[in-house]
Design a protein around this nucleic acid. Structure first.
Length: 275
DNA sequence: CGTTACCCCTGGAGGC
DNA sequence: TGCCTCCAGGGGTAAC
């Protein structure tokens, strides 16, 4: 489910409640997620105060007194993960793998497919963690621009769509937003990355930023006293122009939307509008 | 080095 | 109703 906007909305939903709170307990019900949950994680977390919640790509980073004797709780929602705040004594349901317990509330992590990740990084700099150290630029940061993307793709002869989803280049662009952004900028997902002009990369970057920002804004308005990341609609209250619209009429030209498979993932596009 | 295939897992949808 | 196949918003790793 979660792409960058969903993760960011989860983060924003937690901000009013968690920073400043002290961890009074933690429950690891499932030690095997995408990676093994570190041994002794619950004991390590106990007594630490959550100072801040940051995001890097699709990872949520809980600052647990990292500038003192603590570290970072690193959480990735995978394909099917979600977070929710609830009373600490709420009975766990199937696939509820982890609780971070505070005095009056608990943060619960649910993930049916278990592609999510729960890690711990000791020390002040979460960016040093091996999984974070290799990540590319943030798509909403200044460093991500059309000229930068043009320069970064000169030796990439593969199709542009799978490349957009490569977190070592740029983080946070998942399968939905890759297709949607390419449609908006009228670039074919099949086009070789090194055969796209500077001008078109500027349009693509604008489309990516606008799509992500609009989704965050749309999701943000729906979050109140619980953290919402499995809305189910997939497009986060924004209607998709091409994603999951195989055979339906293109909103721009009226011809049918196509689905193809690229690097093992579905890609949706309008062959007429996107070149 | 760049690119792709495979794999981790569960659940829902649709065909028979 | 049951069983089968395919599909799903991610991404690390191995192999080409």
């Amino acid at each position: 489910m979660p792409e960058l906007p969903e993760v960011e909305v989860s983060r924003l939903g937690l901000l009013p409640y968690l920073p400043g709170q002290r961890v009074v307990g933690a429950i690891v019900r499932t030690p095997k997620l995408r990676h093994d949950v570190p041994c002794g994680l619950a004991d390590r977390l106990c007594g630490l105060r959550v100072d801040a919640i940051l995001r890097r790509g699709k990872y949520l980073l809980f600052d647990c007194e990292s500038t003192g004797s603590g570290g970072w709780l690193i959480l990735h929602l995978g394909m099917s993960g979600s977070l929710r705040l609830m009373a600490p004594d709420t009975p766990p349901q199937k696939h509820d793998h982890f609780d971070l317990v505070f005095a009056h509330t608990a943060l619960r992590f649910r993930d049916p497919r278990r592609f999510g990740t729960l890690l711990w990084h000791e020390g002040a700099d979460a960016g040093q963690h091996p999984l974070l150290a290799v990540l590319g630029v943030e798509p909403l940061d200044e460093g991500f621009g059309g000229d930068w993307l043009y320069d970064a793709t000169r030796r990439r002869s593969g199709p542009v769509k799978p490349l957009l989803m490569d977190s070592h280049l740029v983080v946070g662009i998942g399968n939905i937003y890759a297709s949607e952004s390419l449609f908006r900028s009228r670039i074919s997902p099949l086009r070789a990355a090194n055969r796209i002009s500077r001008e078109r990369y500027r349009a693509l970057v604008s489309a990516i930023r606008e799509t992500l920002a609009a989704s965050i804004a749309a999701g943000g308005s729906s979050v109140r006293d619980y953290v919402h990341s499995d809305g189910g609609a997939g497009c986060f209250q924004l209607s998709c122009a091409v994603y999951d619209r195989t055979g339906e009429a293109c909103h721009r030209c009226g011809k049918p939307i196509y689905m193809i498979r690229q690097a093992g993932r579905s890609t949706f596009y309008c062959p007429s509008c996107q070149r």
